[in-house]
Design a protein around this nucleic acid. Structure first.
Lengths: 229, 229
DNA sequence: CTCTTTATGAGATATTTGTCTCACTAGGAA
DNA sequence: TTCCTAGTGAGACAAATATCTCATAAAGAG
């Protein structure tokens, strides 16, 4: 009868074991890590695990899981840090190349691989992240930014702040898991097409940011040919 | 003790009132529409409604709601069709402009507006869509494609199929709600910056696709200048 | 080792999800 | 009008979510 009540009582007072004593910080850290790892493992197949499953896999009780995370959604969202992601500096540690477009393609290819390889888990995590970071603290950490910046490093000085920001921002739309969602769910094209489109887009953005070399401008590029400069 | 059970029993046999008689098709259509509209309305504030709330708002029983949709997730996902979206052909019906970049900016501005205006609801719907279309039939309809193609119409003949496909694909990464998610959750930049980056990206992609005209080209564009929409 | 503090586990409870059964009610044809 | 059928509502039920309480185990200090 009564129209709109909110019978859900969300985290009125967390008595998390976290913010109490620095004494048992190690234990605390390990328990938390185990929960996140268990959640990440259970999401591998794209199945959204129940909190009970996660707690069981982490060998703790349900109550303990709720002491560490306000609800299941947050737990699953934070588990996204447990997905492997290419490390920017590491990826280019032994790479002295100054061809920015090639470096960006390399970075994108690395991110593309782990994204598609972990697609089911990423979908579940992304769904939780959408609802969780609606309000409050940012849960999502920006890993693609450091990847892009590492690729862009050799040419950083060639752009002013505004142009650099625009390029990074636009590349962020190309690089992340969100692009995979668009290619799969909206456009319904396969992985190869996605890679081709992304490579072309990277080329276009780099050309616009740094200016086209004076030579003959592209006539017909092969799907992912590294012809530039 | 037992490790991995799947206690969730999902739609083993739908006895939906849909696929039976064409006689009461109108009644059926209206009930379904009411449920979707109720769901969309309840998501306006970003709150994920319970199925009971949706059923109550649609003035039907829970059982009936489950007869139309296998679960809450699908109901919320399909409610996304109830969000206003700019109609490509209508947007350019009285627009004879052949400036493709300006047309794309206009289309993007229109989509940008409804996307940001309905952000909370879109987040909830997007979260459901991520989990729902994992397997099975595509729930998501591609509305941005027709918008992009309407904007691109005057120049359609100038590009071969491959180049056209690349441009449309890349623009799809710029246009949708996913871009908003990246700007807000990952990059954490405000709406104005998002508009600026998207405008720049559109310019870059158009340049790459059609080639820079011989005349003097962009020196410094104003951020998010166009008052379009 | 003992004591205190603090995390934990084991319930109990309320709400929600999804399925199922059964009674009823309204639409359409005779 | 009278049937017959299909959609509906109400309720039962198992499972999951989220919160709370209380007893117990374990870590660290003395």
């Amino acid at each position: 009868m009564s129209t709109g009540k909110s019978p859900v009582r969300k985290s009125p007072a967390r008595k998390s074991p976290a913010s109490k004593s620095p004494a048992r910080a190690n234990q605390h850290y390990r328990t938390r890590k185990d929960l996140l790892a268990a959640a990440a493992g259970l999401m591998k197949d794209g199945h959204k695990p129940s909190l009970e499953e996660v707690a069981e896999a982490a060998r703790v009780s349900r109550a303990t899981a709720y002491r560490y995370f306000p609800n299941l959604e947050v737990l699953l969202a934070e588990a996204s840090v447990h997905i492997a992601a290419p490390d920017g500096p590491a990826l280019f540690s032994g790479d002295a190349s100054r061809d920015v477009e090639a470096r960006l393609r390399k970075a994108e290819a690395a991110l593309h691989r782990v994204t598609y390889d972990n697609e089911p888990a990423i979908r579940v995590m992304l769904a939780s992240l959408l609802l969780v970071e609606t309000q409050g603290v940012p849960i999502r950490q920006n890993r693609r930014q450091q990847l892009i910046e590492a690729a862009l490093a050799p040419a950083r000085g060639q752009l002013d702040t505004q142009a650099y920001g625009r390029l990074c921002g636009a590349l962020s739309l190309i690089f992340g898991p969100e692009a995979m969602i668009v290619f799969e769910d909206v456009l319904r094209v396969d992985e190869a097409v996605a890679q081709d489109v992304k490579a072309w887009a990277i080329h276009a953005l780099v050309q616009a940011a740094f200016g086209a070399p004076p030579g003959p401008k592209m006539a017909a590029r092969k799907p992912a040919s590294p012809s530039a400069r």
